[in-house]
Design a protein around this nucleic acid. Structure first.
Length: 161
DNA sequence: GCCAACGTTGGC
DNA sequence: GCCAACGTTGGC
């Protein structure tokens, strides 16, 4: 059973459309600079699935599903002076940050807005819905994954939405 | 090791 | 643009 995750991205920085246009619909997930999020990246295995979430946009929403195609490896952007993700404390000898590669699996026909997820039975403990949640890489429980998947496959306008 | 100051995230 | 929540930094 693959692990399940949620990855946040601001569409102004990197959107799911950008991913769809990427070679092999694959990208490295660079720029995570939070230790808890990094540790979740390290815990990812090839074959794990993740929701692609658009943050800091209107409306914030889960917009797709990606698959991990390469496990955690050093984030070399941290070594490039001048890069927005540069971190002088990360070295090649002792890399501080990691990234994974993900491939686009599915773009949701209808994005699931944050608002639409609130109040859904079974998602009460979902990290994304926690007050003040800022983690950009989050684990998603099996139950939560299935519930959100079902919502995403429902016909737009149906009662379950 | 405490904690105030500061910076960032991200919903609203 | 506001601001709550949270993480990091650095003086002590």
């Amino acid at each position: 059973m693959p692990g399940h995750w949620l990855l946040k991205s601001e569409p102004s920085t990197f959107s799911i459309e950008d991913l769809a246009r990427s070679p092999k619909r694959t990208t490295c997930w660079e720029g995570v600079r939070n230790y808890q999020a990094r540790n979740f990246l390290r815990a990812m295995a090839v074959g794990d699935l993740a929701f692609f979430y658009h943050s800091n946009t209107d409306p914030p929403a889960i917009v797709g599903i990606v698959e991990v195609v390469k496990a955690a490896y050093p984030d070399h952007f941290a070594w490039q002076a001048g890069n927005r993700y540069f971190d002088e404390k990360s070295s090649k000898q002792n890399p501080r940050w990691v990234m994974v590669d993900v491939r686009l699996k599915e773009v949701l026909r209808t994005p699931l807005s944050l608002e639409s997820l609130r109040g859904v039975s079974g998602l009460e403990r979902m990290e994304l819905l926690r007050r003040g949640s800022r983690l950009s890489v989050q684990p998603v429980r099996e139950r939560e994954w299935k519930i959100v998947l079902q919502l995403s496959q429902a016909t737009p306008g149906s009662p379950s939405l």
